[in-house]
Design a protein around this nucleic acid. Structure first.
Lengths: 345, 345
DNA sequence: TTGAAAGCGCTAACAC
DNA sequence: GTGTTAGCGCTTTCAA
């Protein structure tokens, strides 16, 4: 006996007893699975209503082998990007009767695999946002997590659907925009060094440099949040660059505030761009030129891909090529970028 | 037989077979509960490692009567306030090995009770943010949800811990701040009409009016997000008020952008205040004067109260008076408020 | 159409 | 110290 019968909630047995039928019949009525005599069904329903019976999801899960829950692993819930993905995912999943379980790795990369595994055991699938996990580790992990949807990562292992943003393309367009405004000295405020999306931006800038060998391109360390942008202010000023490509909107906003404190005007003295187009980007001072990522769609598409995979598993229709969705950012030109000003004198 | 044995994951039975012991022994080793012969324990551990065995949480949950999961019901995951609470809760709960399950009611008040009930059945407790739910409904619902923690609501039913912000006090301080700057015509941009926290602000303003009968106080309809603030711009201008108390930071930011579009300067022409001090409030144009709510603490304290309740239930130490925590907002004066300007001429 | 019974994977009481 | 067994609450097979 695993449990003392203290504090028992009403279970299927209570309804069965009250309606004078077996558990099985109650189950059938509740799920509308098999045909049940209308009179009996009515009796069962009445008893269920009377007792306010609601099936215990844990018992169902064990019997059914599914939890109607999916997990999402995010590196940092404070990041608007992941908040938006979470929201889109949660709303889309709810429409199909699924709930979302959160696992926040708090940027501790070494925990991600463990969290993801644990989430998978509790859930029917996992959406993994693990920008800093090594490729090898991801490749090893992916098959054990199936059904799995990857955000901003791809892996060769076990055809896993992935949704990603073409950061390379976006940053190139932003850089080109600066060039078209006459900027010749441009600095990139790098994101976390091991972040996959930072690497993509770097790759994009390499292509950009190849096309524009005359542009002086510098690389400055920063990070992925407000503070790292703010802390990079001195380095930005020292660089002498007139156009700054920040890793993302948060970094750009931190920089904006740092420049403002030093009395450096944007865009008159320095042009600044962000990335992501978070909701607040249009309300910064000045409004931020950035690359817009359709972030809400990411969440809902993640759910669609998850559902497709779960159906495939159910049908045993394996081996279907899984989708690799790539979102192209759209450049949003606002007021933080302007033609380069001529040196005084 | 509930399941065809397709696609079986490795279970406790496999480990038991491999180690040549019973399920029970494997369970004992995995949980470190009872004393087990060291040699046998080693054999079990080796088998578990070999098979990469991880206990199935659903089975555990059913046997233990607990899921190590708590649910949170929020009206809108797009709202930074709830994002912050979710985050604080998730991080704090994770520290004790608990996960968070999300239920986003998408502002559909009629769904909240259902969502909360469903969340409670899947989880060991529920944190409920339901600002628009009627008092009567809440009072009826609360006992069925226990352990329950209420955010920004209280209920007389079944002593339920609640965390709330003293919006009344905060809005009075903000109003007083405007008065001290010389403003005599003040308008309040109302939040959702049925929101409990809006009612608190109204109550606070009533007290304020009593203390300052000479101040002309107007009430304008708005809402709780950017757009409602933006849409209220014309009404604000028409009101002739020089000091605006927005329902929250989002509304204030929407208004800021609306005023800017019309060439009305803040704070020179109109002073604007927000509420909440969301992370972006200091980066608006101009930086927003607001009432700071220690929002991250709210989430972690919610977890603490939840844990206390769960322990009480376990100890059957019922009837202990449950905490009603009230957070006092701290006024954060930035640049969106300034002395009222003298009428020209 | 219905009930009895097995089983989902696990924990814990009980007997040895 | 260890195995046997009951039971958590449910679904589904099987036999009637």
């Amino acid at each position: 006996m695993a449990r003392r019968n203290t504090n028992r909630r009403v279970g299927i047995a209570d309804v069965a007893r009250m309606a004078g039928v077996s558990h099985a019949t109650v189950s059938r009525v509740m799920n509308g699975n098999a045909a049940v005599d209308p009179d009996i069904a009515a009796r069962v329903r009445a008893a269920a209503a009377e007792l306010k019976y609601q099936p215990n999801p844990v018992g169902r899960s064990l019997a059914l082998g599914k939890t109607d829950t999916i997990g999402i692993v995010v590196p940092d819930l404070a990041n608007p990007t992941f908040q938006a993905i979470l929201r889109g995912l949660s709303i889309a999943a709810a429409q199909d009767g699924y709930r979302v379980l959160i696992a926040d790795s708090s940027e501790v990369t070494s925990e991600e695999a463990i969290l993801a595994g644990e989430a998978r055991r509790r859930c029917d699938g996992v959406v993994l946002c693990a920008p800093r996990m090594g490729d090898a580790e991801l490749e090893e992990l992916a098959p054990t997590l199936h059904p799995l949807v990857l955000i901003n990562r791809t892996t060769v292992a076990s055809n896993t659907p992935s949704l990603s943003v073409d950061y390379s393309q976006g940053i190139q367009e932003l850089a080109t925009h600066l060039v078209s405004l006459g900027h010749r000295k441009i600095a990139y405020l790098e994101g976390p060094l091991h972040s996959a999306s930072n690497r993509q931006r770097l790759a994009g800038l390499e292509q950009f440099q190849a096309k524009h060998p005359d542009i002086e391109l510098q690389f400055l360390e920063a990070g992925s949040n407000f503070d790292s942008g703010h802390d990079a202010t001195d380095a930005v000023v020292a660089s002498g660059a007139t156009g700054i490509l920040a890793f993302n909107d948060l970094v750009a906003m931190g920089l904006l505030s740092g420049l403002h404190e030093r009395g450096i005007r944007v865009p008159e003295d320095i042009s600044v761009t962000g990335f992501d187009d978070i909701p607040f980007a249009r309300y910064t001072m000045p409004p931020l030129t950035t690359a817009a990522v359709p972030i809400n769609e990411l969440g809902s598409l993640a759910w669609r891909r998850m559902r497709e995979q779960m159906q495939q598993s159910a049908d045993a229709t394996e081996a279907e090529e899984s989708a690799q969705d790539v979102f192209e950012p759209r450049i949003e030109i606002r007021r933080s970028t302007a033609p380069v000003s001529l040196p005084v004198g």
